[in-house]
Computed example of a mutant assay.
Amino acid sequence: MNRQEQKRILITGAAGFLGSHLCDRFMQDNFHVIGMDNLITGDLRNIEHLFKLPNFEFYQHDVSKFVHVPGQLDYILHFASPASPIDYLQMPIQTLKVGSLGTHNLLGLAKSKSARILVASTSEVYGDPLISPQSEEYWGNVNPVGPRGVYDEAKRFQEAMTMAYHNFHGLETRIVRIFNTYGPRMRLNDGRALPTFIAQALEGEDLTIFGDGTQTRSFCYVSDQVEGIYRLLLSDYALPMNVGNPDEMTINEMAQEIILATGSAAKLVHKPLPIDDPKQRRPDISKAIKILNWEPRVSRGEGLQKTIDYFKALPEEELKRKDFTYYKQR
C-alpha cells in the first residue's frame, strides 16, 4: 500500500486499555494511526512502542474541547471516556462531558471529513438488567440519578446523538456495546474485580468480593474484543451491536479461578454490594455472529494466564497500587 492509498484513522482514548490495543491492530494493517488522549486515565506506556513508527502520531488533547485534525480522515474510533467505577465517580463531570460534548465534536469532525465513525458504548446502557442475556433490542433498567448514572447516561446519550447524525446527516456511524473485557494493559487500581483479584492474589492478600458473589459477568479477552470492533467498523451495520463473550460466570467463580491460576492460598472476603451494581451481565451476540462472522476464540484459561503473566512482569510497586475508593463511597 503506497502513501496515497494508506487509510488514516483517528483513535481517541488511544493510551487506554482498549484504545492502545486498537492502535496496535490498525498499525499492523498499515493504517496511518492518529492517537489522541488527554491522559487523565490513559498511560503513555501503553503506546510508547509506537512512537518511533512513521505511520503513528499522537496528540495530547481533551476531545470535550474543539477537535482539529489536519488532512484526510477515513475513520474515527471514539474510545475516550473514563470507564471504571473509580474513574467516573471521581470525575463525574468529565465523564458526562466526554460522552456528550466529546461525542458531538467527533461526530462533527467525521461529518466535515466524510469519515466513518465508530463510537464505543457499553453494556452499562442496559443498567441492572431485568432480562438475560441482554440483546440489542433491550432498552435497559438504568437509574439516571444514581451513582453510576453519570457513566450509564453519558453512553446512552452518546448512542442517541450518534444515531441522530446517522439519520439526519446520513453520516456513516457504527456503535459497539462493549461487555467486560480483560487482558494486558488493564489498570490494577481501577476498582474492577478481575485486575483487583489478580493483584490481591499475587500479593498474597485475601480477595475482596462485594455482595455475595453470585452476581455474574461475562469476560472477553482483549484480542477477541478488538477483532469484533475491527469487523464492525468495516461492516455496513449502523445499529448498536453487542461485542463480548457470552460465557457467563459468577464473581465467586472468577475469584476461585484466579486463586487456582496464581497458586494463591487466599480466601474470599465479602463486603456490601455497591448501589445499582448489575446483578447479571451476559451478551446476546447472535447479531455479531451472523453479521460479522465473529465470536470469541480465546478460552478463559488462556486469556487469564496471559493477563496474570502480564501483571507478574510489572514492577512490584505497581501491584501495591490497588484502590477501593469506589467501594468506600458506598
Results as ranks from 00 to 15, higher is better:
2 N>I: 09
2 N>S: 12
9 I>W: 00
19 G>S: 14
24 D>E: 12
27 M>Q: 08
28 Q>T: 12
30 N>P: 02
30 N>G: 04
32 H>K: 14
43 D>Q: 10
44 L>D: 10
54 P>K: 15
55 N>K: 09
59 Y>L: 06
62 D>T: 04
63 V>F: 06
65 K>G: 04
66 F>V: 09
70 P>K: 15
73 L>N: 15
74 D>H: 14
75 Y>L: 13
75 Y>I: 11
76 I>E: 10
76 I>M: 12
77 L>E: 11
78 H>Y: 15
80 A>G: 07
81 S>V: 13
85 P>N: 01
88 Y>T: 02
89 L>N: 15
96 L>G: 04
104 H>R: 03
111 K>R: 11
122 T>K: 10
124 E>H: 08
124 E>D: 04
127 G>F: 00
132 S>L: 00
134 Q>Y: 09
134 Q>M: 15
135 S>L: 07
149 G>E: 10
155 K>Q: 12
156 R>L: 06
159 E>K: 13
160 A>K: 09
168 F>D: 14
169 H>M: 04
169 H>I: 01
170 G>I: 00
174 R>T: 01
177 R>I: 01
197 F>I: 01
206 D>V: 07
206 D>H: 08
223 S>K: 10
227 E>C: 02
231 R>N: 14
236 D>M: 12
237 Y>E: 11
239 L>R: 09
239 L>P: 00
240 P>Q: 14
250 T>F: 05
265 A>Y: 09
266 A>Q: 08
269 V>A: 05
278 P>K: 00
291 I>K: 03
295 E>F: 06
301 G>L: 03
301 G>T: 06
301 G>W: 04
308 I>W: 03
311 F>W: 13
314 L>E: 08
320 K>Q: 08
321 R>N: 05
324 F>K: 12
325 T>Y: 13
